[in-house]
């Protein structure tokens, strides 16, 4: 029985018709292609893009140099050096993230006890030469300063699921 069906399918071009039918269906369906950069896909508040270092409202940097993110980072992308600041607190003298190594797993954000290192919604960043994507502490703080409002809103939205 199966042999006979196959025999007819072969010379009646059944597979071809089946394929063309699928093509035809999509040909007339509504298009979902996003015209980047004019158009953008929607993002969730947990989106994990470019990193930022946050500050408290007082302007004090949040990071306490506990190095948990450095320890947890599976790509070894974070490099931290610390010292005791005048006021007796531990602060970083160096906080670098090599975005070329980073796999955007978000563990650093997850491990941070003070919500200092976060991943923002920014995904459109680039570097023009080697080293441009090696983000240092001032660069990260600058990102944080610029997008603090959005960052804070996203954390607030996520808070109730934690």
């Amino acid at each position: 029985m199966e042999k006979i069906t196959n025999f007819f399918k072969t010379f009646l071009l059944f597979e071809l018709v089946k394929g063309m039918a699928l093509t035809g269906r999509y040909f007339f369906a509504r298009k979902i292609t996003v015209q980047f950069p004019e158009e953008k896909t929607p993002q969730g508040f947990r989106f994990r893009g470019l990193h930022a270092q946050r500050r408290y409202a007082s302007g004090e940097e949040r990071c306490i140099g506990c190095k948990l993110c450095e320890a947890v980072c599976p790509a070894l992308a974070i490099n931290i050096e610390t010292e005791e600041r005048e006021d007796g607190t531990r602060r970083t003298t160096r906080y670098d993230i090599d975005l070329m190594k980073c796999i955007f797993c978000g563990f650093c954000e997850e491990s941070c006890p003070v919500d200092a290192i976060v991943e923002t919604r920014i995904l459109e960043y680039h570097g023009e030469k080697r080293g441009d994507l090696y983000y240092t502490k001032p660069m990260l703080l600058a990102v944080g300063d610029k997008y603090e409002e959005q960052i804070a809103k996203d954390r607030a939205a996520d808070a109730k699921y934690r």
């Binding site: 140099g65 320890a71 610390t82 010292e83």
Partner: peptide
């Protein structure tokens, strides 16, 4: 030594 390194590193 204070605050210059963490034990695990």
């Amino acid at each position: 030594f204070r605050f210059t390194a963490r034990a695990w590193e």
